[in-house]
Design a protein around this nucleic acid. Structure first.
Lengths: 207, 207, 207, 207
DNA sequence: GATGAATGAGGCTTCATTCAT
DNA sequence: AATGAATGAAGCCTCATTCAT
């Protein structure tokens, strides 16, 4: 029974892989279950062996985005080097990761709008477990805010930096991502440096 | 034969107003023609008196977003004051405008994903005049890059700044917007200052 | 008030003229009230000043077809010349009239199918005054059958000819019409002679 | 992956059978997809498993009419007996077939009007392979014209008969059909003899 | 009388989901 | 488990008809 489980889980991942690809290509709204099935090389009905509904597929894709984000911040939280450097690494790492996985990046943008108010959500309230994108970004900012504060105490950045500045750093990354997705000629990966230096210089102590 | 005292164009704007509100509330994908009609206080079929199709409504909404963006950059291009200041004004103006018209802002986010590969586009190819969001952002960056260069020549910012840094500035604005839309507790309007100072300080000449 | 009446009737005819042209061009099914209005050079709503409904327009068009048919047979019933000749004249006259008024002819073909079971007709039965096309053809055949019988008594055709042979004569005309309408290269007007001679020869007494 | 024991093609035929019945009963224009589905005993949406659109259903019905017509003329073209007799057989066969399949016959009449200028045809131009009814009748007349010419050489009919007389023969059949469809009391099947004898006698050599 | 804006019922088509095989 | 045929709810759009001006 154990191998069965593994198989099942592996198959599920395969389907999700396919879904992510199609979601990235056509967007959620335009993606039909059949598209996902075709991309996964299985029959339409078989998708339902692994996911309860179209919505569940969407939520699973969201979970991937969230997990990736978490992995990223987790790495940055590890101490051992100066906070400014860990911050710089975090920014560079985030850009690199988004650039390396454009499909997930595209889905994230879709989530920005879809996550807001899903059609399925009944006016009453208790819908499916919400795609808590807000929480993801809150955590993201928290980690950065902590690093900013620490770097402030280290004297590498201005003291007193907090949530607002963390939001600016996150903004620079996500905003650059948007421009790349909207216009593939924008060299997103190459923006890692300008983003890092601009933000960090901008937050240095005034001479 | 009398031109009918109902002003066609005004009525069309009313419907578009309604559409923008609903698009912002539910997203494009989830918005049905009937929702727009209800919001406008007219019958479903009446929407078609003013717009050829659901897609035309979407395109008109895009045009509003694009027009607003243009108004913004046009103001910044007017000379008369130092480039750094005009740049700072542009950033603050952009944030203020987005904060003041959250509906259009939300639609813009929808456009980021929808604009990519619209489902409506017939396989044949030449559909309606594409929602050229890329062009909007290209123009946006251009204006900012010009200001950066000018400020460089003024000695207010580093010399040699260009497209990349312009992208970072745009990114900071749009990225902050995203965080606000995803999480209304993010004080977007208040981020105008942190964004402006961080970016401009970060681009100052090194002492 | 009298001139008003005349005006009104004349306008009504104008609208019907327009309707006949459009019906002939696009067929009933594909003709919208607006098409008729445009062809008549009036507004959509004005059509309803002269006709109660789309269906009434159709019925009026039918009436024209029927009236024309009646005029035709009426002429043939007038005595004074040998029956065979009146018969030949009737056939030639029918062809000439149909060829001269292709619009009405096209409408007649539409009536063959539409007249059968109009959508509006409730399953129960009592719909609008039916388009009694059957009656039109019955009268048509009657007149011809009478002429055949008379020509039989005259010794110009075989005796004992009746409804069946009348149907064949009518058939030759209407069937030729169909071929012309389906394929404009068929020289309908020129078929008057072949139809007349074939039928009349075919009904001559055997030598 | 098993080919599913339901034969797709057979099922498609079933649906087409149902469509033909409904088309015959209500006419094309008045037939909704739901009517066809109900007649076939399936759900509305299921019709689309077998036909791409309402129009495709119409075209398939046309194909049946055309195929039947072809079968008929093919039989007549086979030599072996005198041409006059084959001609007589063709006429009788045509009437018998039309009388035996009144549904297809009714559809044919619908095609006479629908085939002309189908509403479905996009303004662009090249829609689906047009319902080339003209071609069907052209072929029909050709076969008959050949038989007439051969019978002329045999001395059974007048020499020099051609397209015009062929049109008259076709006309007699189709025209009789019309009268029957318009008025079910017309004994169409019994008209086979009057048509045959009238036409063939009418085309005999003059004594 | 004329108009044409407004209405809303109705038809076509799509597609998430189910289920018999 | 896997399939894909079948379903039917929903959404887009059209157009006959009404009605205020």
């Amino acid at each position: 029974m154990a191998p069965k489980r593994v198989d099942r889980a592996a198959r599920r991942e395969d389907v999700l892989d396919a879904a992510v690809r199609v979601f990235a290509r056509r967007g959620f709204a335009a993606t039909r279950i059949e598209d996902v099935a075709a991309e996964a090389g299985i029959a339409k009905g078989s998708v339902y062996l692994y996911f309860d509904s179209r919505d569940a597929l969407l939520r699973a894709a969201f979970a991937r985005v969230a997990a990736r984000s978490e992995r990223l911040t987790a790495a940055a939280a590890r101490p051992g080097r100066p906070a400014v450097q860990r911050l710089a690494d975090l920014v560079r790492g985030a850009v690199a990761m988004l650039a390396a996985e454009p499909d997930l990046a595209r889905i994230m943008v879709d989530l920005w709008s879809t996550g807001r108010a899903r059609p399925g959500t009944p006016p009453g309230g208790t819908a499916a477990p919400a795609l808590d994108l807000a929480e993801v970004y809150r955590a993201y900012r928290s980690v950065i805010a902590d690093l900013l504060a620490e770097a402030g105490r280290d004297g590498d950045l201005r003291p007193g930096l907090g949530q607002a500045e963390a939001a600016v750093v996150v903004a620079a990354i996500e905003g650059a991502l948007v421009q790349w997705l909207v216009d593939p000629e924008v060299p997103f990966a190459d923006l890692a440096d300008p983003i890092t230096t601009t933000c960090l210089n901008g937050l240095r102590p005034r001479p």
